[in-house]
């Protein structure tokens, strides 16, 4: 077997590799890849979804360059991502470390941490809006109680609506990513910790020398997922602020929905999606390269 000619072995590897992919790939190709691929065509057309699309070349992208609302949505999306990604990463890793123990009641606390993710998003939006209610909400009552004279207006103020949405986004997502981190923590061999302990490493040193490197594939996966999820944030904003007040929380995914389904400019909506896609891709590739370099 080891004497098999190189070319034949490569061919065999390809066949074996493809046979693994096939069951998933057929479904993926037809139902996801082809529709997504069509988007790259529609982005260069004027298309009202019902009829044929008219080729307009780069018109959509030229329009986008002048479209102040697009830039506002892009800026808001970056704002959301810039805070939501590190915050969620930190909180969910912290939770995972905390709850990766044999504590009494750990199952309960894990379930509690996962609760925000499974609670209906409509209920989530309603309750948080109520908590944030500027006049009567408990959040501001608490702030006043600790001595803040002029607490923020949260979702009713253009300056504070994005921080409010980021907080709720983190609160909602932390359990999800905690779960992924927990699974990742199980892949780190216990002997490594034992060895580190024998060497007299402190808890912090063990975290730096064993946990972080051991979690690298997981962290990469989570960071990519979190980045994409943050750039695509939609449901939460839709139900919490619907982009307001004014345009203060309007994000790209919502803008795409508006342009497509509300204003029937599916060609333009596709073009904006392509831009969103490109941003995600660039960030992902950078993460990919950084990850490759670190792990080698």
């Amino acid at each position: 077997m080891t004497t098999m000619p190189v070319r034949r072995r490569r061919w065999r590897n390809t066949a074996v590799g493809l046979s693994f992919l096939l069951p998933n790939f057929i479904g993926f190709l037809i139902l996801t890849l082809i529709p997504v691929g069509l988007l790259f065509y529609y982005a260069f057309t004027e298309w009202n979804v019902f009829g044929g699309a008219t080729w307009t070349g780069l018109d959509n992208f030229r329009q986008m360059a002048r479209d102040t609302t697009f830039w506002t949505a892009l800026r808001n999306t970056l704002y959301y991502a810039a805070f939501h990604i590190p915050l969620t990463l930190g909180v969910s890793l912290g939770l995972a470390l905390l709850l990766n123990r044999k504590l009494r009641g750990v199952a309960f606390f894990r379930t509690v941490a996962f609760f925000p993710y499974i609670t209906s998003i409509v209920a989530v939006a309603q309750i948080w809006n109520m908590l944030f209610s500027p006049g009567y909400g408990p959040v501001n009552e608490l702030l006043r109680w600790v001595g803040v004279d002029n607490p923020p207006g949260w979702t009713t103020s253009a300056d504070w609506s994005m921080p409010a949405v980021i907080l709720v986004g983190t609160w909602r997502d932390m359990g999800y990513y905690m779960l992924l981190f927990l699974a990742g923590l199980q892949t780190i061999p216990g002997q490594l910790y034992e060895a580190a302990r024998v060497d007299g490493a402190s808890a912090w040193q063990r975290f730096r020398a064993v946990t972080l490197p051991g979690l690298r594939p997981t962290t990469f996966f989570i960071t990519v997922l979190l980045t994409i999820g943050s750039f695509k944030v939609f449901d939460l904003i839709l139900v919490m602020t619907n982009g307001g007040p004014g345009q203060s929380t309007l994000v790209l995914a919502q803008y795409i929905f508006r342009k497509g389904f509300e204003e029937n400019q599916f060609g333009y909506a596709s073009a904006v999606s392509i831009v969103l896609f490109a941003i995600c891709l660039v960030v992902t590739v950078v993460q990919f390269v950084v990850n490759k370099r670190r792990s080698s």
Binding site: L39, L225, F234, L252, S273, F277
Partner: peptide, 9 residues
């Protein structure tokens, strides 16, 4: 494909 918002395709 993960990076493309579903509402667009």
């Amino acid at each position: 494909t993960l990076a493309v918002p579903w509402q667009s395709y």
